[in-house]
C-alpha cells in the first residue's frame, strides 16, 4: 500500500480506537455515576440499587464494592460494609481511596469495641 495513504489510515484507526475504548467509558460507568449522583442528593436507596446492579454486571468492580460499602455504613449494616470493603481491597489492594474509607470505617467501630471490652471486664470482675 502506498505510504502516503497508509499513514493517515493508521492514524484514523488509532483515533477511532481511542474514541471507542476511552469515550465509551462513561456509558459503561453509568450505574456507578448515577449511584454517586443519587448519594450526593441523599437518595441512598437509589444509590444502593445502582451499585448493586453494577456488581451484578461486573462483580470485579472495586469501585462498585467500595461505594456499596459506604451505603451499607450509612444504613448501619456493619458486617456487610466490612465484606464489601474487603472485596474492593481484594480487587484493588493499593487503591488509596478504598484504603482510606476502610480505615475510617474501622475507626468508627473502634470506640464501640473499646466499650464492649470494658463491658466484658465488668462482667469478669466478679469471676
Amino acid at each position: 500500500m502506498n505510504k502516503r495513504v497508509l499513514f493517515p489510515v493508521v492514524l484514523f484507526c488509532l483515533a477511532a480506537s481511542i474514541i471507542a475504548t476511552r469515550c465509551s467509558r462513561p456509558l459503561r460507568e453509568n450505574q456507578l455515576r448515577l449511584g454517586i449522583w443519587a448519594a450526593e442528593n441523599n437518595l441512598w436507596e437509589e444509590a444502593f440499587f445502582r451499585w448493586q446492579k453494577e456488581i451484578a454486571v461486573r462483580p470485579k468492580s472495586a469501585a462498585a464494592h467500595n461505594n456499596l460499602a459506604v451505603a451499607m455504613e450509612k444504613s448501619g449494616r456493619w458486617e456487610e460494609a466490612r465484606k464489601e470493603y474487603e472485596a474492593a481491597l481484594k480487587i484493588q489492594p493499593n487503591n488509596a481511596q478504598i484504603k482510606t474509607n476502610y480505615q475510617k470505617f474501622k475507626e468508627n467501630l473502634e470506640s464501640t469495641d473499646k466499650d464492649k471490652e470494658q463491658k466484658g471486664k465488668a462482667a469478669d470482675e466478679k469471676k
Binding site: A15, I18, R22, C23, R25, E40, V70, K74, W78, N108
Partner: peptide, 24 residues
C-alpha cells in the same frame, strides 16, 4: 481528533462526600 479523543477520555475518578454515619 486524536487530541480531542484523549481529552474526552480524562474524567474525575472519585468524589469525596460527607456522609452521616451512625455509630453502632
Amino acid at each position: 481528533l486524536l487530541l480531542f479523543a484523549w481529552a474526552c477520555s480524562s474524567s474525575v475518578s472519585y468524589k469525596k462526600i460527607l456522609v452521616e454515619i451512625p455509630a453502632p
